[in-house]
């Protein structure tokens, strides 16, 4: 993702300050919702091309990134469309699910 690191951190900080992660995400809901992610993000945890790896991502950071897409503070049409249709509860569920996974090389 060619994005300015400072801007990225600033956005992350801002989002983290506004919307703390829900630590008690519904993992089973997250697992179902994740089937939308796996069309682009490898289940193995590999990064290929311009699609970042998200397996094992810390939940707080996951929530912050998704909120940044939902609020359109972070650019990417696909991810903005994905995040726009997710409730906070669903984002927390996805975050809990992805945090629980280990990359499988």
């Amino acid at each position: 993702m060619p994005q300015n690191g400072a801007v990225r951190l600033a956005v992350l900080g801002f989002v983290l300050a506004c919307t703390p992660a829900d630590a008690a995400g519904d993992r089973a809901l997250g697992e179902y919702l994740s089937s939308e992610c796996t069309s682009c993000h490898q289940s193995s945890g590999k990064q290929v091309g311009g699609i970042p790896a998200i397996i094992g991502h810390p939940a707080e950071q996951f929530v912050a990134l998704m909120n940044a897409y939902r609020e359109r503070q972070r650019d990417n049409q696909v991810m903005q469309a994905v995040a726009a249709r997710l409730s906070s509860e669903e984002i927390a569920a996805l975050a809990a699910y992805y945090e629980s996974l280990k990359p499988n090389p």
Binding site: Q47, G49, G50, I51
Partner: peptide
Amino acid sequence: AENVGWYAAI
């Protein structure tokens, strides 16, 4: 780059 990554993932 997304297109390439998507093909590998799907």
